[in-house]
């Protein structure tokens, strides 16, 4: 099972929205994943395979061991599906 973090500035609102849509996209592709939402500073010290966030916050996460995946429009399932398809491999 892969470990995915969805990240926003506070870890309360927008990262939870992103988690919901990322889980939907992963389910569709039958990729089994544990998706957790959190703020940037918590994410920096949490190991994961993938970190999904906005371009605004990606810079603060560039040292993360996981692959950073950027989503521009959190409500565009086409973009999120495509980001998952291009970046995620199931394991």
């Amino acid at each position: 099972m892969i470990k995915v973090l969805t990240v926003c500035g506070l870890g309360q609102g927008t990262s939870l929205i992103l988690k919901m849509n990322v889980e939907t996209a992963l389910n569709e592709k039958n990729i089994k994943a544990d998706v957790e939402h959190m703020d940037v500073s918590a994410a920096s010290s949490t190991p994961a395979d993938y970190v999904v966030t906005s371009s605004e916050l990606a810079d603060s996460l560039k040292d993360h061991s996981g692959k950073v995946v950027i989503v521009k429009n959190y409500f565009d399932m086409e973009e999120i599906n495509q980001a998952v398809e291009e970046n995620f491999t199931s394991s």
């Binding site: 500035g9 506070l10 940037v40 966030t53 906005s54 605004e56 916050l57 429009n73 959190y74």
Partner: peptide, 10 residues
């Protein structure tokens, strides 16, 4: 502090 990242979609 965190910038406009909460502009989540156009």
């Amino acid at each position: 502090e965190n910038g406009p990242y909460f502009v989540l979609a156009p």
